[in-house]
């Protein structure tokens, strides 16, 4: 790193750190959805990336519709669009659980294959409807600017917005899981399905809503994704491996673990990308995680349970 002065290095670190934060936010939301589904239900959803893509295309459609019919609403549409993205991804997830997932609960490896099939079908639907090329939504102006605390540091506002969004969703999910009646039922179902059923919890409905919520959060991730990149039919599938590693690395059932691992993976990739190439940054990060997982397979956080 001989070519950089200390000051340069600091600026690079801060800026790459912030660009890592955008990626962290998307990764965190993706992983949060997946962690709920995998951690609480033990279901592997290989189509999770496509639920993110649903969210991203929803933003694209809403943006086009707003531009055509209500141009005056342009500054505000994004907020509503995030809600719509959640609702649509949630609905598709609800139907998916009903048609596919619930038949495969005791066969995790088969669920993995079936949801892979689902992801192929969803990708092809996106391609047929939106075409193979990348599309991007018109973002409101207030998202486009950047913030310059010093001469050499330049922090894009969309990154900050996405980060706030991700943290809000995270906090909301934590509240939901640990403070609400629903969260209590979900945790009860996770820990002892038969007993939960016996005390009158509708475990089937809990499963369906849990799965759909995970998908809905992926939809929000997709909405955030549109602020940092353009959307193509395979956008989501590019994230799926990283997301799984985030969840596994974080320790499947731990919210704090998921946040920590999303943060470290995103930051490592972002900073390494600057010094190596983007591909090598990714290789080094993923490889490090796999090596750590081989040494410590239970991930960062682990619940000790008497078996």
């Amino acid at each position: 790193m001989g070519g950089y002065s200390l000051n340069d290095l600091m600026s690079i670190l801060v800026m790459q750190g912030f660009s890592g934060l955008s990626m962290f936010s998307v990764l965190l939301l993706m992983a949060l959805g997946l962690a709920i589904i995998f951690g609480q239900m033990g279901v592997i959803n290989m189509a999770h990336g496509e639920f993110m893509t649903i969210g991203a295309y929803t933003i694209f459609i809403t943006s086009s519709l707003t531009n055509t019919y209500f141009p005056s609403l342009k500054p505000f549409y994004f907020i509503f669009a995030i809600g719509i993205a959640f609702v649509i991804a949630f609905a598709v997830g609800y139907v998916t659980e009903f048609l596919l997932i619930r038949h495969l609960y005791k066969r995790p490896l088969d669920t993995l294959l079936a949801t892979w099939g689902l992801s192929l079908i969803m990708q092809q639907i996106f391609r047929s409807v939106f075409g193979g090329r990348e599309v991007s939504a018109d973002l409101p102006d207030w998202l486009m600017g950047s913030w310059k605390p010093t001469e050499s540091i330049d922090i894009p506002l969309n990154g900050v917005f996405v980060l706030v969004m991700a943290l809000l969703v995270c906090g909301f999910v934590a509240l939901l899981l640990f403070k609400s009646q629903w969260g209590l039922k979900v945790r009860a179902t996770t820990q002892n399905r038969i007993m939960a059923g016996a005390v009158g919890i509708n475990t089937k409905l809990i499963d369906r809503i849990t799965f759909a919520t995970g998908c809905g959060i992926a939809g929000i991730a997709g909405a955030c994704f549109t602020t940092i990149a353009s959307t193509s039919p395979t956008s989501g599938s590019l994230y799926i491996v990283d997301t799984f590693l985030v969840v596994v690395f974080g320790g499947a059932a731990s919210l704090i673990g998921t946040i920590t691992s999303a943060f470290s993976i995103a930051q490592a990739q972002s900073i390494l990308t600057f010094f190596l190439t983007s591909a090598m940054g990714k290789v080094v990060t993923l490889l490090t995680i796999i090596v750590i997982l081989m040494i410590k397979p239970e991930g960062l956080m682990k619940n000790k349970v008497r078996r």
């Binding site: 596919l100 038949h103 495969l104 066969r107 088969d110 669920t111 294959l113 079936a114 892979w116 099939g117 689902l118 992801s119 192929l120 079908i121 990708q123 092809q124």
Partner: peptide, 13 residues
């Protein structure tokens, strides 16, 4: 791709 996807789902279901 539809067919391939259906195969994955069909064969496990």
């Amino acid at each position: 791709l539809f067919f391939m996807g259906a195969m994955f789902i069909g064969v496990v279901m």
